[in-house]
Nucleic acid binder design. Structure first.
Lengths: 261, 261
DNA sequence: ATTTAACATCTTGTCTGACAAATTTAGCGC
DNA sequence: GCGCTAAATTTGTCAGACAAGATGTTAAAT
């Protein structure tokens, strides 16, 4: 008789406990995919808590991609639950950037290899266009960083495996936040640009020829050189994000982020 | 003087809008890292909403890793904001698993290479122990899957780059959810086990010897063979997660058509 | 009988007010 | 200044109410 409610042991965060227990229950299959779970009131009674806490708990699960809620209808177990990878953005430093590049390199190399094997004509065209865009941007006096990223993304897309684009986008977001490249050092750019263009061309040629190993080698070379360039001039390329720490006055000037590929 | 509150345009979800605007404000640097943001009451007045909505919005940001809240103190912008990668777990099918393995392979290969270069003595010892654990588990009649994963994880750890362990763990979670390895087919295991042990031994030897290229080659071989083994006997290794759909009420849902590839 | 429209009911979203718990701040004695 | 206590502040939780949509039922119309 007294076991109507599952006693909530008081602890660090009540709503967190409830979210955990709900998550466990879903994981255990108490409610299958897409099934509607009990109303907030019912859950509140079951766990012996108020509706507020139930709502916060469900909100957590919702943000975790485990449930979805429809107003007037109810909350439902998500059709496709998700796993998530979270990456803290530390105080930007050369070390963390290098570690990420270390991981990204084999991915881009493999993407180039797969792209050489699988690229469709239209995907090949898109890679070519991206290369042209880099030239145009550079000649227009822009940094061309965005176009450079687009070039690499086009290659990843041509690998025809969505996970490559997802992971590479993920780490590009990290790099975008972690690095602030100063207005591109003109002399640096001049010196590097020819080399970068040549390396890009080599990758493109290999992919166009369908030569997987050559594409992989070209990509490996390009990325190794890019990392070397980054290591070589770190003080010019890395800048602490201290504007974030300052006051509210810093107007939203977004210094064109990027790296030196 | 009607501009005291930023008019909330009604839309899909009020709390979501507020969360978005708060996120934007933080992103724009209105409050720097670690700074305390206004009280819930103040934010409610600012946005012209009630405290409930403010709380839900902050809850979203908190679950997104953008803010942290301390009872009695306030809510603060997180010291280290995060970027997140989410991966939906689809109806398990061979295709999605193969795509993930395709991405995991170059990572594990690179991890083996780095491990050969950087492993500490204790890390090498841990890899050895993991290999012994596999044998013991198999001899004890277990599947040894967990121990196999631990072996690969030990290698990733020996690479001394936290991103490798993070990403590989991430995809292992995906695989763990997407695949249901049936009670290991004994005959299959018997046939494969010797080969697997030999391949593991090759990786370990190369890492122990500090031969990076040999380690990479051994890992590549191992993973290629593993994928081949998976392709070869997919029906034995893949199993639909249909227990999830069963229990409560499976009315009005498509009958989960066969995704045979 | 089938379709359509109005209605009642249910569920989540939001509002309001209150109290509890924990932290921060202020005050006070010394 | 330092240590202690008390008050003020702030998030966490509770309770009740209404609004906004969605669902299901009933009645009307053809």
């Amino acid at each position: 008789m007294s076991e109507d409610t599952e006693q909530p042991s008081r602890g660090p965060q009540l709503s967190e406990q409830v979210a955990q227990r709900l998550s466990d229950a879903i994981q255990a299959g108490e409610w299958g995919r897409g099934a509607r779970l009990p109303t907030e009131a019912a859950l509140g009674e079951r766990f012996g808590i108020s509706r507020s806490v139930v709502r916060e708990a469900i909100s957590m699960l919702r943000n975790g991609g485990l449930v979805t809620s429809r107003r007037g209808s109810g909350s439902f177990v998500a059709e496709s639950p998700t796993v998530s990878l979270r990456l803290a953005i530390p105080d930007p430093g050369l070390q963390s950037v290098v570690e990420v590049l270390e991981l990204r390199r084999p991915l881009e190399v493999e993407a180039a290899r797969l792209a050489a094997e699988r690229r469709t004509p239209s995907q090949l065209r898109r890679i070519r266009n991206a290369m042209v865009d880099i030239d145009e941007a550079v000649e227009a006096g822009l940094s061309g960083v965005d176009q450079d990223l687009a070039f690499h993304r086009a290659i990843a897309e041509a690998a025809n495996n969505a996970h490559f684009t997802a992971v590479l986008d993920f780490y590009n977001r990290f790099l975008h936040h972690a690095i602030r490249v100063t207005r591109t050092n003109e002399s640096l750019r001049e010196a590097f640009m020819q080399q970068v263009v040549a390396e890009h061309q080599a990758i493109l040629d290999a992919i166009a020829a369908g030569d997987a190993e050559a594409a992989a080698r070209a990509a490996a070379t390009h990325l190794a050189h890019a990392e070397a360039r980054l290591r070589q001039a770190p003080t010019d390329l890395l800048e602490r994000v201290e504007a974030q720490r300052g006051s509210t006055s810093t107007s939203s000037t977004e210094p064109t982020g990027g790296n030196s590929r």
